[in-house]
Write a protein that binds this DNA or RNA. Structure first.
Lengths: 340, 340
DNA sequence: TTGTACGCGTTATCAA
DNA sequence: TTGATAACGCGTACAA
């Protein structure tokens, strides 16, 4: 076992006290430049590394942020993490990454561990099955700030950075309306998931703003995956000719891909027979036979804004509770009917 | 500032010593069941959370693993992280994630911070610009085990888990040879990057095994991006008809995409005029006009094997130094000349 | 400028 | 079964 080099060793080697070593190493003003020089040299020579664990214990600060991610393979989240990482690195914070795997139980246990590890703050995107918010409140009562990102919990006094799902859905639906389509369908997400609800609301709002009738038969509750979009589109395509939608807003890109497959299998053209748009700008969207018009979500920016807010809170620069919305961007390709 | 609940508070509330509280909370055998029960209850009631920082200080163990990732947005790495996370979670370790952004300087500073935070072990995929290995050796001399993953540093006594680039390149090249192609070109990576070298070696080895001549003019040193593949292919397409390759092995999928673009722009067909294969099974590979035959790298497995090895080392279950190779898998689509 | 005493919250050790 | 004491490595507060 290699013996560890502590500040005490460095002090002993120089015949001075550990305090002087500590001061020299932390660039405190009140230390003789010559002493500092010697301390730095011998620290270097002895291979001294400060023990942040000990430091954290006394300072009650770990310079560590806990990040809870519900699904690390979903490409949105690595992007968020990159944004988080960029800002936290600049501010001198490290990240403990926890994966809840969409399980409320794992999320709770992850949060408890992070609190025990004394993180200075928490960045959380809630798992889909979470319904009990007491753990969040407990944590905040301990003085540990939480900023939710992407999937938020409202009304518990925590900050929140999210994509404007509703407004973006309105935006893209209105784009279809501008093409002159009157009968527009919606392949929605599961009704209990917040982002699915928001997008559906945005869809409906766009129709209402243009005084188009909202036909419940044209709104199919499906899911976020390709197969969900495929079967939902099957249902829409079996409607009588007069009822069939001329355009479709899918809850996300994978669902749109599934829907496109169903459309092609019915020997219909996109966008000539049925226009379709997605949501999230999947990397495959522009590679489709007819490139998919969609909404690009700025995951990177969500991450940046969320940590920034958290760090501000940790360092007491701000105490206001706000809901930061990162706008989605309309990515126009051809599936909506646009050309070129 | 909310007052923190420590073991001492719990002890005081019950009129017992902190040691008994500690023992009860850690499920030690030598504590009266009734006492334990009372301790657990009041700990719960008072909202006690153990302070792992203090615990780590005395136990000299943090149950934390440092992970250094060179590029978090490259889809390979989130997959690896997921594998790491799965095993580490099961074993009770948390992950501190650091991003080197392909910079040797940032990597070094990340490692230093992780060591200072007293991680129990390190998982590192080296940044591209790294040439100085002393930091790795320093860390290992302190008794902190390192397992390299994907991008390894050999001959310094560290474990290593990687994809078998060379063998996989041989595999996919031989697949082309079996199609009967004789003149096969290679769009390679930058010569200083290890995985580029290995793939090129594997390519050459396959030709040699089949007694095909290795023509230096058919090996174009390029890069890992689409534009690199595009311009390299331009060069190959400008060779005189008798010299032009009948098939091409690209160093990775993006390079292959670029090459395909160049081929189409020359009004040639894939695979009828030029066959092409890639490497890494990018999500877009199967969506190309002619779906791309490629090698699927099991990033998830790389992560799992790497942490497992690291944890074994941390817990002294093993001390042997080995090089674990995760095999690549040939994904046959149509760009190689296969049909159906 | 430098040093001493003490505390951060926990556990190991030894004694009761 | 339980408790007192010391220690983990460092920084604060005060004294020299």
């Amino acid at each position: 076992m290699p013996k560890r080099v502590t500040a005490k060793e460095v002090a002993k080697a120089l015949g001075i006290s550990t305090m002087t070593v500590s001061r020299a190493l932390n660039n405190r003003p009140n230390v003789d430049p010559k002493t500092r020089q010697k301390v730095l040299e011998t620290a270097q020579k002895l291979g001294y590394f400060p023990n942040y664990i000990a430091k954290s214990l006394v300072l009650r600060k770990t310079n560590t942020i806990g990040v809870v991610v519900p699904e690390i393979t979903h490409s949105f989240f690595p992007e968020v993490v990159r944004g988080i990482e960029e800002i936290s690195y600049q501010s001198g914070y490290d990240l403990i990454l926890s994966h809840s795997a969409e399980s409320g139980i794992r999320e709770k246990s992850a949060i408890e561990t992070l609190v025990s590890k004394q993180v200075d703050g928490l960045l959380i995107s809630t798992a889909q099955t979470v319904s009990d918010y007491t753990i969040y409140q407990q944590v905040m009562r301990r003085g540990i700030p939480i900023v939710f990102y992407d999937r938020c919990v409202k009304n518990i006094g925590a900050n929140c950075v999210s994509i404007d799902d509703e407004e973006s859905a309105t935006l893209i639906t209105e784009h279809l309306i501008q093409h002159g389509y009157q009968r527009i369908g919606h392949i929605s997400g599961p009704s209990q998931v917040l982002i699915g609800q928001a997008r559906k609301q945005g869809f409906i709002k766009a129709l209402q703003k243009s005084n188009l009738t909202v036909d419940a038969d044209l709104i199919i509750e499906a899911g976020f995956h390709e197969k969900d979009g495929y079967s939902a589109m099957q249902t829409l395509l079996q409607l009588p000719p007069g009822k069939m939608p001329r355009a479709v807003v899918a809850v996300n890109d994978p669902a749109a891909f599934g829907a496109m497959k169903a459309i092609y299998e019915h020997n219909l053209r996109i966008p000539e027979d049925v226009a379709i748009v997605g949501f999230s700008d999947d990397i495959r969207a522009e590679l489709m036979r007819t490139p998919l018009t969609t909404i690009r979500q700025n995951a990177y920016e969500v991450g940046r804004r969320a940590v920034q807010k958290l760090i501000d809170q940790i360092e007491n620069k701000t105490s206001s509770v706000e809901e930061i919305i990162v706008k989605g961007e309309l990515v126009i390709r051809n599936s909506c009917g646009c050309t070129g």
